[in-house]
Amino acid sequence: MNMAIRVDHLVKKYDKNTAVDRISFNVFEGELFGLLGPNGAGKTTIINILATLIHPTSGYAEVAGIPVTGDRDALRHRIGIVFQEPALDVRLTGMDNLQFHAMMYGLAKQERKERIAQVLELVNLEPKANLLVEKYSGGMKRRLEIARGLIQHPKVLFLDEPTLGLDAQTRRHIWDYIRKLNREKQITIILTTHYLEEADFLCDRVAIIDKGRIAAMDTPSDLKSILGGDMVHIKIQGEASAYLDLLAKSDWIKSIKQHHDQLTLTMEHADKRIPELMNLARQAVAGVQSVNLSKPSLEDVFLHFTGRNIREDESTDGFQ
């Protein structure tokens, strides 16, 4: 299989702050690859480097066989990008936005007409094409941007937080479009997200990015299986060290993690083990507030690899 993207020891520094810290990964042609991480983890910086908008400090990166520091215009011809923030001219109609894009990518008149009709159909925006974009809803703007990113028939499509700020129903629709593009048009897609369910639902492979580095990279199901079976979350009250000792002696428990007052245990067939867990708690005189059983999610994977919840950093973001 050929590589659509190769990244090798990529570094981007801003003054003293290292946004991307020696990251390496490859994306195969036709793959739907996700960069998962909290805001400020460096995902957008990676995308901006790959899209030739900013220069890397050091390291190597190439897209569609072209180094990002090489023939930038040739590279730009081969990619499409949907930015995190809308990048539309709202004082123009949807059609104008698409027309101008097609012209900047050097398409001839007849080709422009055909491709614009195609992409409008793909995102179901034909009836709204001649409306000013300032009258569009958030979901419509996103769809228009996805359509625009496809006009030049990109080999690689970058989607930076494609469903940020959209309601649940619209998000579902966007997910369907993204899947359709990847499956039917065989476009390599690399997306960034801090929604775990989005990465889980869409991506063939996921790289978990934390503080500018890759914490883990694999398929969502393999990442989840690293955690080993089902998970039981026990919320405890008060002192729990006696309980933890008892749990540590039970060989059917594969792992024990403590995060504040929450214990996360992994084991096989957890549903059958819950009575036993309660017995142990009684023996250790530990207060149990609640017990929760779950199949592992990427949320758990993130916690496992970074020691933090993905949403813990959210209150401090927005200032870059």
Binding site: L53, D73, F83, A87, L88, H101, R148
Partner: peptide, 14 residues
Amino acid sequence: EFGFLKEIMVAPIS
């Protein structure tokens, strides 16, 4: 401010 500059900057034009 409205993001359109990025659309222009990422296009293959000088």
